[in-house]
Amino acid sequence: MTSETLEQKRAARKEWLSKLEFFDAFCSLYIDNNSEEFESAIASPEKLLAEMDRNGVSRAVVYHGNTGMVGAAYANNELAEGIKAYSDRLTGVWSILPEQCHELPDVEHIFVAMKENNIGALTLYPTWHRWIPNKLTIGRLMEAVAARKVPVYLPLGNGEGSWKWVYDFMKEFPTATTIVATLGLWGSDRNLRPLLENYPNLHAEMSQYWVPEGITDMAKIYGADRLLYGSGMPKMGFGSTMLSIVNLQLPEGDIEKIASGNIKRLLAWN
């Protein structure tokens, strides 16, 4: 290899990195009052945006970090209000509940409300909010959600879902577009790979998937379209997973998908 060639490669990488966009597929706003990370939580959109800038993250999908405790209706409203002024950079996630109690907009109105409030995805906290996610409780809603390809976050940890819960949800709603989040720091291949293999619309965000070369392996087996950069803020920071992603042993196009392209595609329903 000549030094000239090496310089050209360095210049090409620098150029590519300068154009690479990071769109965080999973972070939260507001303080989780039950979290030990209380004091370091990102409590305002302004603080979140400043930290995004410091790390070079252009946009983010945000859920309300205290949804478990304050409930879906309150959290959904507060989140929509909080991100209103920042719709160019922050896209919200609303939490759903059983349709029969009419606590949230019904299936005929929820998608319009989401559009009006810059909400790009849904999630659910059945453990915190004490209900069972199945066809009886959210069947009509999930049918419409799946048809429109609205992404639904299935969070693990934080007192919420378990892998069993995710498996049950996917068995009940196999065509839903889903994003498994907060995988847990112990390598989760034994649980995640069967889901990726069997449910083509299931995705995973990578904020807590730290297995060496693991993202590369999964992208090669299941496709880079299935994996998303996520920070997991404020429990996790923005930067650590970014360095992993720019060093994946994948083609640049695949890295671009994981860094930002996939979440943009999933939010395009709106």
Partner: peptide, 8 residues
């Protein structure tokens, strides 16, 4: 854990 992740 991935070296790049921790260095990052």
């Amino acid at each position: 854990f991935d070296e790049f992740q921790h260095i990052g």
